[in-house]
Design a protein around this nucleic acid. Structure first.
Lengths: 146, 146
DNA sequence: TTGCTCCTCACGTCACGTGAGGTGGC
DNA sequence: TTGCTCCTCACGTCACGTGAGGTGGC
Protein backbone atom coordinates (compact mmCIF):
# COMPACT_ATOMS: atom_id res chain seq x y z
CA UNK A 1 0.00 0.00 0.00
CA UNK A 2 2.88 2.34 0.74
CA UNK A 3 4.05 3.83 -2.55
CA UNK A 4 7.80 4.11 -2.26
CA UNK A 5 9.62 5.17 -5.42
CA UNK A 6 12.61 2.88 -4.99
CA UNK A 7 10.55 -0.05 -3.77
CA UNK A 8 12.35 -3.26 -4.71
CA UNK A 9 10.01 -6.06 -5.70
CA UNK A 10 11.12 -9.65 -6.19
CA UNK A 11 10.12 -11.63 -9.24
CA UNK A 12 7.61 -13.73 -7.31
CA UNK A 13 5.89 -10.64 -5.95
CA UNK A 14 5.69 -9.07 -9.40
CA UNK A 15 4.28 -12.32 -10.78
CA UNK A 16 1.55 -12.27 -8.11
CA UNK A 17 0.80 -8.59 -8.75
CA UNK A 18 0.43 -9.15 -12.49
CA UNK A 19 -1.25 -12.56 -12.53
CA UNK A 20 1.71 -14.15 -14.30
CA UNK A 21 4.57 -16.47 -13.26
CA UNK A 22 8.29 -15.91 -12.69
CA UNK A 23 8.94 -17.99 -15.81
CA UNK A 24 6.81 -15.66 -17.94
CA UNK A 25 8.60 -12.58 -16.63
CA UNK A 26 12.01 -14.15 -17.29
CA UNK A 27 10.84 -15.09 -20.79
CA UNK A 28 9.75 -11.52 -21.52
CA UNK A 29 13.19 -10.36 -20.44
CA UNK A 30 14.80 -13.05 -22.61
CA UNK A 31 13.07 -11.84 -25.79
CA UNK A 32 13.68 -8.17 -24.96
CA UNK A 33 10.14 -7.14 -23.99
CA UNK A 34 11.35 -6.10 -20.55
CA UNK A 35 14.39 -4.18 -19.41
CA UNK A 36 17.16 -6.48 -18.18
CA UNK A 37 18.32 -4.40 -15.20
CA UNK A 38 21.96 -4.53 -14.20
CA UNK A 39 22.72 -7.42 -11.90
CA UNK A 40 25.49 -9.97 -11.54
CA UNK A 41 24.96 -13.33 -13.24
CA UNK A 42 23.04 -15.65 -10.96
CA UNK A 43 21.93 -12.88 -8.62
CA UNK A 44 18.30 -12.07 -7.89
CA UNK A 45 16.31 -9.78 -10.15
CA UNK A 46 14.61 -6.76 -8.61
CA UNK A 47 11.74 -4.74 -10.01
CA UNK A 48 9.93 -1.47 -9.38
CA UNK A 49 6.22 -0.69 -9.47
CA UNK A 50 6.79 0.79 -12.94
CA UNK A 51 8.00 -2.63 -14.14
CA UNK A 52 4.90 -4.26 -12.69
CA UNK A 53 2.73 -1.68 -14.46
CA UNK A 54 4.39 -2.44 -17.78
CA UNK A 55 3.91 -6.18 -17.34
CA UNK A 56 0.27 -5.56 -16.47
CA UNK A 57 -0.14 -3.60 -19.69
CA UNK A 58 1.55 -6.32 -21.72
CA UNK A 59 -0.60 -9.06 -20.22
CA UNK A 60 -3.78 -7.08 -20.72
CA UNK A 61 -3.12 -6.30 -24.37
CA UNK A 62 -2.00 -9.87 -24.96
CA UNK A 63 -5.17 -11.31 -23.43
CA UNK A 64 -7.74 -8.82 -24.69
CA UNK A 65 -6.39 -8.15 -28.17
CA UNK A 66 -4.78 -11.54 -28.86
CA UNK A 67 -1.57 -9.97 -30.12
CA UNK A 68 1.68 -11.92 -30.44
CA UNK A 69 4.60 -10.81 -28.31
CA UNK A 70 6.27 -9.64 -31.51
CA UNK A 71 3.33 -7.37 -32.32
CA UNK A 72 3.16 -6.20 -28.71
CA UNK A 73 6.84 -5.45 -28.83
CA UNK A 74 6.34 -3.15 -31.82
CA UNK A 75 3.32 -1.49 -30.22
CA UNK A 76 5.16 -0.81 -26.96
CA UNK A 77 8.50 0.06 -28.56
CA UNK A 78 7.05 3.30 -29.86
CA UNK A 79 5.72 4.02 -26.40
CA UNK A 80 9.06 3.32 -24.76
CA UNK A 81 10.83 5.59 -27.24
CA UNK A 82 8.31 8.32 -26.51
CA UNK A 83 8.76 8.02 -22.75
CA UNK A 84 12.49 8.41 -23.30
CA UNK A 85 12.09 11.51 -25.44
CA UNK A 86 9.61 12.89 -22.98
CA UNK A 87 11.97 12.84 -20.05
CA UNK A 88 14.66 14.48 -22.16
CA UNK A 89 12.51 17.17 -23.68
CA UNK A 90 10.39 17.99 -20.66
CA UNK A 91 13.40 19.66 -19.09
CA UNK A 92 13.98 21.89 -22.11
CA UNK A 93 10.48 23.39 -21.70
CA UNK A 94 10.42 23.78 -25.46
CA UNK A 95 6.70 24.03 -26.42
CA UNK A 96 7.32 22.89 -30.00
CA UNK A 97 9.03 19.72 -28.76
CA UNK A 98 6.26 19.13 -26.24
CA UNK A 99 3.62 19.48 -28.94
CA UNK A 100 5.54 16.95 -31.01
CA UNK A 101 5.61 14.48 -28.11
CA UNK A 102 1.94 14.95 -27.35
CA UNK A 103 1.17 14.36 -31.02
CA UNK A 104 3.03 11.07 -30.92
CA UNK A 105 1.26 10.10 -27.72
CA UNK A 106 -2.12 10.82 -29.31
CA UNK A 107 -1.18 8.72 -32.32
CA UNK A 108 -0.21 5.85 -30.10
CA UNK A 109 -3.42 6.05 -28.08
CA UNK A 110 -5.38 6.21 -31.33
CA UNK A 111 -3.77 3.00 -32.57
CA UNK A 112 -4.66 1.17 -29.38
CA UNK A 113 -8.19 2.55 -29.39
CA UNK A 114 -8.69 1.29 -32.94
CA UNK A 115 -7.64 -2.21 -31.93
CA UNK A 116 -9.82 -2.17 -28.81
CA UNK A 117 -12.86 -0.86 -30.68
CA UNK A 118 -12.45 -3.43 -33.42
CA UNK A 119 -12.52 -6.18 -30.83
CA UNK A 120 -15.47 -4.54 -29.09
CA UNK A 121 -17.43 -4.54 -32.35
CA UNK A 122 -16.75 -8.24 -32.89
CA UNK A 123 -17.74 -9.12 -29.33
CA UNK A 124 -20.92 -7.03 -29.51
CA UNK A 125 -21.86 -8.83 -32.73
CA UNK A 126 -21.34 -12.18 -31.01
CA UNK A 127 -23.41 -11.00 -28.04
CA UNK A 128 -26.24 -9.92 -30.34
CA UNK A 129 -26.28 -13.31 -32.03
CA UNK A 130 -26.36 -15.14 -28.70
CA UNK A 131 -29.18 -12.93 -27.39
CA UNK A 132 -31.07 -13.62 -30.60
CA UNK A 133 -30.68 -17.37 -30.06
CA UNK A 134 -31.77 -16.95 -26.46
CA UNK A 135 -34.94 -15.11 -27.51
CA UNK A 136 -35.87 -17.76 -30.03
CA UNK A 137 -35.38 -20.55 -27.48
CA UNK A 138 -37.45 -18.70 -24.86
CA UNK A 139 -40.19 -18.07 -27.35
CA UNK A 140 -40.32 -21.77 -28.16
CA UNK A 141 -40.54 -22.58 -24.44
CA UNK A 142 -43.55 -20.25 -24.18
CA UNK A 143 -45.18 -21.95 -27.16
CA UNK A 144 -44.74 -25.33 -25.46
CA UNK A 145 -46.26 -24.04 -22.24
CA UNK A 146 -49.28 -22.58 -24.06
CA UNK B 1 -24.12 -18.71 -53.09
CA UNK B 2 -26.24 -21.76 -53.97
CA UNK B 3 -27.07 -23.54 -50.73
CA UNK B 4 -27.07 -27.20 -51.55
CA UNK B 5 -27.43 -29.54 -48.59
CA UNK B 6 -25.00 -32.16 -49.78
CA UNK B 7 -22.50 -29.65 -51.09
CA UNK B 8 -19.04 -31.18 -50.85
CA UNK B 9 -16.38 -28.69 -49.92
CA UNK B 10 -12.66 -29.43 -50.09
CA UNK B 11 -10.35 -28.64 -47.20
CA UNK B 12 -8.81 -25.65 -48.98
CA UNK B 13 -12.24 -24.16 -49.66
CA UNK B 14 -13.28 -24.61 -46.03
CA UNK B 15 -10.02 -23.02 -44.89
CA UNK B 16 -10.74 -20.00 -47.09
CA UNK B 17 -14.34 -19.77 -45.87
CA UNK B 18 -13.24 -19.85 -42.22
CA UNK B 19 -10.05 -17.80 -42.40
CA UNK B 20 -7.95 -20.77 -41.32
CA UNK B 21 -5.53 -23.15 -43.07
CA UNK B 22 -5.80 -26.79 -44.12
CA UNK B 23 -3.21 -27.60 -41.43
CA UNK B 24 -5.41 -26.09 -38.72
CA UNK B 25 -8.45 -28.05 -39.87
CA UNK B 26 -6.48 -31.30 -39.93
CA UNK B 27 -5.14 -30.51 -36.47
CA UNK B 28 -8.65 -29.96 -35.11
CA UNK B 29 -9.63 -33.34 -36.54
CA UNK B 30 -6.48 -34.89 -35.00
CA UNK B 31 -7.38 -33.75 -31.49
CA UNK B 32 -11.03 -34.68 -31.88
CA UNK B 33 -12.56 -31.21 -32.17
CA UNK B 34 -13.98 -32.04 -35.60
CA UNK B 35 -15.73 -35.10 -36.93
CA UNK B 36 -13.37 -37.38 -38.81
CA UNK B 37 -15.73 -38.33 -41.66
CA UNK B 38 -15.44 -41.80 -43.16
CA UNK B 39 -12.85 -41.90 -45.91
CA UNK B 40 -10.15 -44.26 -47.05
CA UNK B 41 -6.61 -43.59 -45.79
CA UNK B 42 -4.86 -41.06 -48.01
CA UNK B 43 -8.06 -40.04 -49.78
CA UNK B 44 -9.32 -36.47 -49.83
CA UNK B 45 -11.43 -35.06 -46.98
CA UNK B 46 -14.80 -33.56 -47.84
CA UNK B 47 -16.84 -31.15 -45.79
CA UNK B 48 -20.34 -29.69 -45.68
CA UNK B 49 -21.46 -26.14 -44.93
CA UNK B 50 -22.33 -27.35 -41.42
CA UNK B 51 -18.69 -28.29 -40.88
CA UNK B 52 -17.60 -24.85 -42.05
CA UNK B 53 -20.09 -23.27 -39.65
CA UNK B 54 -18.67 -25.25 -36.74
CA UNK B 55 -15.11 -24.27 -37.62
CA UNK B 56 -16.21 -20.66 -37.82
CA UNK B 57 -17.69 -20.90 -34.35
CA UNK B 58 -14.53 -22.53 -32.99
CA UNK B 59 -12.28 -19.88 -34.51
CA UNK B 60 -14.48 -17.06 -33.29
CA UNK B 61 -14.62 -18.29 -29.69
CA UNK B 62 -10.90 -19.06 -29.78
CA UNK B 63 -10.03 -15.55 -31.00
CA UNK B 64 -12.53 -13.50 -29.04
CA UNK B 65 -12.53 -15.36 -25.73
CA UNK B 66 -8.95 -16.65 -25.77
CA UNK B 67 -10.00 -20.17 -24.79
CA UNK B 68 -7.70 -23.16 -25.21
CA UNK B 69 -8.84 -25.87 -27.59
CA UNK B 70 -9.34 -28.10 -24.55
CA UNK B 71 -11.74 -25.59 -23.02
CA UNK B 72 -13.46 -25.05 -26.37
CA UNK B 73 -13.82 -28.79 -26.72
CA UNK B 74 -15.69 -28.96 -23.41
CA UNK B 75 -17.83 -25.96 -24.28
CA UNK B 76 -18.83 -27.41 -27.65
CA UNK B 77 -19.11 -31.01 -26.48
CA UNK B 78 -22.25 -30.12 -24.54
CA UNK B 79 -23.61 -28.44 -27.65
CA UNK B 80 -22.86 -31.45 -29.82
CA UNK B 81 -24.54 -33.77 -27.34
CA UNK B 82 -27.59 -31.52 -27.31
CA UNK B 83 -27.80 -31.44 -31.11
CA UNK B 84 -27.75 -35.22 -31.05
CA UNK B 85 -30.52 -35.49 -28.47
CA UNK B 86 -32.47 -32.87 -30.34
CA UNK B 87 -32.64 -34.81 -33.56
CA UNK B 88 -33.67 -37.92 -31.63
CA UNK B 89 -36.31 -36.30 -29.47
CA UNK B 90 -37.77 -33.94 -32.04
CA UNK B 91 -39.37 -36.89 -33.76
CA UNK B 92 -41.07 -38.06 -30.58
CA UNK B 93 -42.94 -34.75 -30.32
CA UNK B 94 -42.81 -35.21 -26.56
CA UNK B 95 -43.28 -31.73 -25.06
CA UNK B 96 -41.55 -32.67 -21.77
CA UNK B 97 -38.46 -33.83 -23.67
CA UNK B 98 -38.52 -30.71 -25.82
CA UNK B 99 -38.70 -28.50 -22.74
CA UNK B 100 -35.70 -30.37 -21.35
CA UNK B 101 -33.68 -29.79 -24.52
CA UNK B 102 -34.62 -26.12 -24.67
CA UNK B 103 -33.56 -25.79 -21.04
CA UNK B 104 -30.15 -27.23 -21.85
CA UNK B 105 -29.86 -24.95 -24.87
CA UNK B 106 -30.66 -21.92 -22.72
CA UNK B 107 -28.04 -22.99 -20.18
CA UNK B 108 -25.45 -23.33 -22.89
CA UNK B 109 -26.27 -19.94 -24.38
CA UNK B 110 -26.13 -18.46 -20.88
CA UNK B 111 -22.63 -19.83 -20.33
CA UNK B 112 -21.39 -18.33 -23.58
CA UNK B 113 -23.10 -15.01 -22.85
CA UNK B 114 -21.36 -14.83 -19.47
CA UNK B 115 -17.97 -15.34 -21.09
CA UNK B 116 -18.70 -12.79 -23.83
CA UNK B 117 -19.99 -10.20 -21.35
CA UNK B 118 -17.00 -10.67 -19.07
CA UNK B 119 -14.71 -9.93 -21.98
CA UNK B 120 -16.87 -6.99 -23.04
CA UNK B 121 -16.55 -5.50 -19.54
CA UNK B 122 -12.75 -5.81 -19.59
CA UNK B 123 -12.52 -4.26 -23.05
CA UNK B 124 -14.85 -1.40 -22.13
CA UNK B 125 -12.70 -0.69 -19.08
CA UNK B 126 -9.61 -0.60 -21.29
CA UNK B 127 -11.40 1.70 -23.74
CA UNK B 128 -12.39 4.06 -20.90
CA UNK B 129 -8.80 4.27 -19.71
CA UNK B 130 -7.51 4.99 -23.20
CA UNK B 131 -10.15 7.69 -23.76
CA UNK B 132 -9.18 9.21 -20.43
CA UNK B 133 -5.52 9.33 -21.50
CA UNK B 134 -6.58 10.84 -24.83
CA UNK B 135 -8.54 13.59 -23.08
CA UNK B 136 -5.65 14.49 -20.81
CA UNK B 137 -3.24 14.67 -23.76
CA UNK B 138 -5.62 16.84 -25.78
CA UNK B 139 -6.14 19.12 -22.83
CA UNK B 140 -2.39 19.58 -22.51
CA UNK B 141 -2.16 20.39 -26.21
CA UNK B 142 -4.78 23.11 -25.71
CA UNK B 143 -2.82 24.50 -22.79
CA UNK B 144 0.29 24.69 -24.94
CA UNK B 145 -1.59 26.50 -27.69
CA UNK B 146 -3.07 29.06 -25.26
C1' DT C 1 21.75 -21.50 10.66
C1' DT C 2 17.28 -22.72 8.71
C1' DG C 3 13.79 -22.05 5.10
C1' DC C 4 12.12 -19.96 1.42
C1' DT C 5 12.67 -17.86 -2.81
C1' DC C 6 15.60 -17.22 -6.23
C1' DC C 7 18.98 -18.84 -10.08
C1' DT C 8 20.19 -21.36 -14.68
C1' DC C 9 19.84 -25.08 -17.84
C1' DA C 10 17.00 -27.97 -20.42
C1' DC C 11 13.33 -30.84 -21.89
C1' DG C 12 8.03 -30.85 -22.51
C1' DT C 13 3.69 -28.89 -24.44
C1' DC C 14 0.10 -26.52 -27.12
C1' DA C 15 -1.36 -24.94 -31.51
C1' DC C 16 -0.15 -24.84 -35.22
C1' DG C 17 3.75 -23.44 -39.65
C1' DT C 18 6.51 -25.31 -43.11
C1' DG C 19 8.71 -28.01 -46.23
C1' DA C 20 9.60 -33.04 -48.36
C1' DG C 21 8.00 -36.45 -51.14
C1' DG C 22 4.10 -38.62 -53.08
C1' DT C 23 -0.88 -39.55 -54.78
C1' DG C 24 -5.78 -38.11 -56.26
C1' DG C 25 -9.51 -35.95 -58.93
C1' DC C 26 -11.71 -32.33 -62.26
C1' DT D 1 -2.33 -36.10 -69.85
C1' DT D 2 -1.32 -31.82 -67.38
C1' DG D 3 -1.85 -28.98 -63.21
C1' DC D 4 -3.54 -28.08 -59.08
C1' DT D 5 -4.93 -29.47 -54.74
C1' DC D 6 -4.78 -32.92 -51.79
C1' DC D 7 -2.27 -36.60 -48.73
C1' DT D 8 1.05 -38.13 -44.73
C1' DC D 9 5.13 -37.77 -42.09
C1' DA D 10 8.09 -35.00 -39.47
C1' DC D 11 10.76 -31.28 -37.87
C1' DG D 12 10.36 -26.13 -36.48
C1' DT D 13 8.31 -22.34 -33.70
C1' DC D 14 6.03 -19.46 -30.22
C1' DA D 15 4.96 -18.79 -25.45
C1' DC D 16 5.55 -20.49 -21.99
C1' DG D 17 5.23 -25.08 -18.04
C1' DT D 18 7.86 -28.03 -15.32
C1' DG D 19 11.21 -30.29 -12.99
C1' DA D 20 16.58 -30.87 -11.70
C1' DG D 21 20.21 -29.28 -9.21
C1' DG D 22 22.26 -25.44 -7.04
C1' DT D 23 22.95 -20.66 -4.79
C1' DG D 24 21.29 -16.20 -2.41
C1' DG D 25 19.21 -13.10 1.04
C1' DC D 26 15.96 -11.81 5.13
Amino acid sequence: MSVVADERLRIGEVAELTGTTPRTIRYYEEIGLLRCGERAQGKHRFYTQADADRINEIVRLRNLLGLSLEQLSQLLEAETARAELRREYRETEDPAAQREILGQLLGHIGTQLELVRGRLAELRQLERELVQKQRRARSRVRELNA
